[in-house]
Amino acid sequence: MSTHRRHTPAPDAPVLGGVVGACHDADVKLALSPATDSVLTGAVEVARAALLEGTPADQVGEHLGIWAEDGLTATHVFACVHPGYVGWHWAVTVSRVEEAELVTVDEVVLLPGDAAIVAPRWVPYKERLQPGDLSPGDLLPVDDDDPRLVPTYLVGADEDVDRGQVKVVAADLGLGRVRTLSVEGRDLAAQRWHDGVGGPEAPIAKQAPHNCWSCGFLVLLAGPMSSTFGVCANGNANDDGRVVTLDHGCGAHSEVKLTRTQQPAPMPDHVFDSFTEDRETF
């Protein structure tokens, strides 16, 4: 199926003609409006002939309407009856020079309507990756201008002085981390952790009797994250080894106690069979 450069009309473009009809579920909706340029409006057959130059006749349906691109340019719409393009329509743009009767065909294109099946928006592979997608041996390089990272020597002032000095020297010597987390990268991570399974809105946290900040199994983080996050060190908890917010929680809190009704029923006393001994005595 041959088409020329893709062309999309402006959403607020005035309409020169009305809808003649609909064909093959094209779902083309053009508002009725009186024609303002009789030369462009009358160029239906010119537009159809240009369309048929590269398209089989059995794929072109009836003329559906015409909308204006500007004062001297308009687009004719034809139904597409190709079974593989349900909901699409042909658009042929024509124009003329001012005070001229000759119409020139600018482009021919196949456009989707509201009911058309189109491919999903392309997403770069880096944006499609989810935690757990990387397999052993896979590499995921970071762009040089990734806003989540900055040169380590630029953030030395954000940490304590001694560590900052070490970072500067290590960077100058080509040792240690060349880049470290930027403020933007830190904020993105903090938001992601807060909204995840280790945050306060997790279902398990909403049912927890206490928060993580008072749990003996919480390992606090150092640096600017320490006031909001920690790491769970309870091997019996779902979040063991994960970053959790201080207002997260679960039923494995170090100070959790069972109520009397939640405690297991006490074992009954042992039963002593004295009947046999009594018979032996007599």
Results as ranks from 00 to 15, higher is better:
121 R>Q: 09
9 P>A: 07
176 G>H: 06
60 V>F: 01
35 A>E: 01
218 L>H: 04
271 V>K: 13
126 K>L: 09
150 V>A: 11
192 R>K: 10
167 K>M: 15
163 R>Q: 15
233 A>M: 10
24 H>W: 08
219 V>P: 02
17 G>D: 00
272 F>S: 10
33 S>Q: 07
50 A>Q: 00
117 I>Q: 09
135 S>I: 08
282 F>C: 10
255 E>W: 15
261 T>C: 05
156 G>K: 14
249 G>S: 07
61 G>I: 12
146 D>I: 10
23 C>Q: 10
60 V>M: 00
126 K>E: 12
109 V>K: 00
68 A>V: 02
183 V>K: 15
252 A>H: 15
259 T>M: 03
263 Q>A: 14
14 P>K: 02
224 P>E: 12
155 V>C: 06
112 P>D: 03
281 T>H: 04
114 D>S: 15
51 L>W: 01
5 R>C: 08
68 A>M: 13
60 V>C: 02
235 G>T: 10
128 R>D: 12
197 V>G: 11
41 T>Y: 05
105 V>I: 05
107 E>H: 05
96 R>V: 03
85 Y>P: 01
49 A>C: 02
234 N>Q: 02
199 G>Q: 08
143 D>H: 13
57 A>H: 03
77 V>M: 03
63 H>N: 02
177 R>A: 14
223 G>Y: 06
42 G>Q: 02
26 A>W: 03
215 C>Q: 05
142 V>T: 14
79 A>N: 02
102 L>H: 13
46 V>M: 04
84 G>N: 13
196 G>S: 13
14 P>S: 03
38 S>C: 02
39 V>G: 04
36 T>G: 15
29 K>D: 09
119 A>L: 12
237 A>H: 07
247 D>Q: 08
78 F>N: 03
273 D>K: 07
234 N>C: 11
98 E>M: 06
209 P>V: 11
145 D>M: 13
251 G>D: 13
127 E>V: 10
189 A>K: 07
220 L>Y: 08
49 A>I: 01
151 P>H: 12
100 A>M: 13
281 T>M: 06
137 G>A: 11
241 G>N: 03
7 H>T: 08
186 R>I: 07
7 H>G: 00
219 V>G: 11
222 A>C: 02
16 L>P: 03
52 L>H: 00
40 L>G: 09
69 E>K: 07
80 C>L: 06
120 P>T: 09
153 Y>Q: 15
176 G>R: 04
243 V>S: 09
5 R>F: 13
133 D>N: 11
36 T>P: 01
100 A>C: 14
249 G>D: 03
187 D>P: 01
33 S>T: 01
173 L>T: 05
170 A>G: 08
127 E>C: 07
229 F>W: 06
105 V>E: 02
103 V>D: 13
232 C>E: 07
158 D>H: 09
85 Y>I: 03
90 W>V: 05
93 T>Y: 00
281 T>R: 10
263 Q>E: 14
177 R>N: 12
281 T>Y: 04
77 V>T: 07
147 P>F: 04
262 Q>W: 06
120 P>F: 10
104 T>H: 13
162 D>A: 12
